[in-house]
Design a binder for these strands. Structure first.
Lengths: 346, 346
DNA sequence: TTGAAAGCGCTAACAT
DNA sequence: ATGTTAGCGCTTTCAA
């Protein structure tokens, strides 16, 4: 019992396949009587008709497939949220997402082959997602294609891109600390030269300045953005007599290191030390004690935004090409758990 | 410059499209001279020819798409590894993976609509992955389709399924502890009625028995499989005078709770207390101090196995249908980090 | 050993 | 307002 085709529907409705096609696709500039429309729809429903996408694709030269090229899907839950956002948006537009995982390339040949693999599969457009916010060389065969960059930017400014608002996220985090009453706020930064490092530092400075809090440069430490180095730097900073009453950490892993440092030094979180992280990695943030107040990266939203933009691009909406000029920033909201309170002596 | 078609290749090679098709597909029972074959291949290469998958699909009634229906892609990195394994295996066979995320259904109507969505997209077969090992009701429209279950089993035994070898994983974990010299080994189990709970407990008992170590039932505690309850149970067990020298934890989150309990009680890990977890959630296991020795779930392997099996099913290899009889078990290997050593007084 | 031609299910230009 | 028909790019039957 193979599934019904358009001619079965036509036959049952007593009309031609053309009419069925027109009705079911709401083809513009065609006039079909309400009565006929109803009959056609009824017939389609009765037969459980769904169009054969392959035939449709062949005919229209549109596969309805969009490729998502993502780095390191498996290593972080972040990719999962991008996929989810893209997925849901794609479904809204009746598009199908094809995901391809790829390594992070170091040898500079970018992802030409992965793009080609997607092209061979007849995708209509491509989403390119990196694992962390940075600038990437554009695969050469991506140019000329409808494409959107997720969590990365293209120096040429030819492809629209969406990235997290790093500065805004840091502002939210540090503002939260300031509003709790803290004035001695340390910052445990990453030491890589990536946008997040600079953006979060900028946000940190910005808030202190805005509140007239003098910036003590010795309260700003940096290290690789892992738990262990974070622990090390946190110990140094927290062992000082004039230790900060709050710590803003570059990411949740470093915050996890800070938790350990605090515990070893007998500092109670949040009463002796308030902490805010970044990334909202549930597995860490929700399982620390107390739960880590942190800033979420808008992965879901970036995935969804990217697909929406792609749809506009596919429709040829000229204005959306202008988006390529500068990356679109998406909000990084604060997620409040239990690691922040007012400083003890206030 | 639209991409080359089969007739362009035929023209350039000076042969018919039939011959091109035969050569490029290595169609059996067709005899084409070596010389011609070479000419055709050369022409295809020159033109950068790749077949139009949509036309191919339409003609052969095989889309080359396989659907992966996965629960909660975004919440755990586990799904990522399944996807990766499935992805890579799919690529080997020139198949394209289409992923659909879905909620875990509670209202019992299983995932009928999600399966339908995949079917509407002309997938040739379906993979159904659950977030954790359990028995699931089969979506009714999945029957009759080539399908494989990942991390779950079907009570009817009509669809092949692949699941982790829970017992084997627990055996590996506890054996590791025994071989390090431990005889008082506690078990912090989950309290849900799921296969993992029973399997891991069975493995634990099995190893102790095999080594002639008497089982002290008071050393077996259970709670919800989260960090906080794990912490609570661990504190109780570790506060005892005859506390165990080692703890096998149902999962890494509970182990994380045990770490905290140990720290609060002044017990050094691994010297005063050895710990083994389960799940190998990198974010936790690699970031605890010392690193958590744990057991990995074979997500990648299950994804790959599922696709391989699907390919056989698609080829109609009868023997593979027999696989449905009982789920295939895949190894859960021990991942050694730093949380196990010999007991202090041994 | 190779080629001609039908036809997969659909859309759209053109006819009526 | 609705119908006829060509053809998207390919595979495959059948013929040469």
């Amino acid at each position: 019992m193979k599934s019904a085709g358009i001619r079965d529907v036509a036959e049952l409705a007593g009309v031609s396949v053309t009419t069925v096609s027109h009705v079911l696709n709401d083809t513009p500039h065609t006039r079909v009587s309400e009565e006929t429309r109803a009959r056609v729809r009824q017939a389609a429903k009765t037969l459980g008709y769904g169009p054969n996408r392959m035939a449709q694709a062949l005919r229209t030269n549109r596969s309805g497939l969009i490729g998502l090229l993502s780095e390191e899907i498996a290593t972080t839950p972040h990719a999962g949220r991008i996929i989810l956002g893209a997925q849901n948006a794609a479904r809204e537009h009746d598009l199908t997402l094809v995901i391809v995982n790829t390594e992070r390339e170091s040898n500079g040949n970018s992802h030409r082959d992965d793009v080609q693999a997607l092209l061979d599969r007849q995708v209509d457009a491509i989403l390119y997602a990196t694992m962390y916010h940075r600038q990437v060389p554009l695969p050469p065969n991506l140019k000329g294609l409808p494409a959107v960059l997720i969590d990365s930017t293209d120096q040429a400014g030819v492809v629209p891109a969406v990235v997290p608002d790093e500065v805004g996220g840091a502002v939210a985090a540090v503002t939260h600390l300031v509003e709790a009453g803290h004035t001695r706020i340390g910052f445990l930064n990453n030491d890589d030269d990536v946008p997040a490092t600079h953006g979060r530092l900028a946000g940190y400075r910005q808030v202190l300045q805005a509140h007239g809090i003098p910036i003590d440069e010795t309260l700003i430490a940096s290290s690789p953005s892992e738990t262990l180095p974070g622990y090390g730097r946190a110990r140094e900073v927290l062992a000082r007599d004039d230790r900060p009453t709050a710590l803003f950490c570059y990411n949740d892993r470093m915050a996890m290191g800070a938790y350990r440092a605090a515990m070893e030094l007998g500092l109670n979180i949040p009463h002796d030390l308030s902490i805010v992280g970044f990334d909202n990695q549930e597995l860490i943030a929700a399982n620390l004690f107390p739960g880590l107040t942190t800033v979420a990266l808008p992965h879901y939203e970036m995935g969804a935004w990217a697909v929406e933009t792609l749809v506009h691009l596919l429709h040829g909406d000229a204005q959306y090409k202008l988006l390529a000029d500068k990356p679109t920033l998406l909000d990084c909201p604060l997620i409040v758990r239990g690691s922040v309170t007012k400083p003890r002596d206030n």
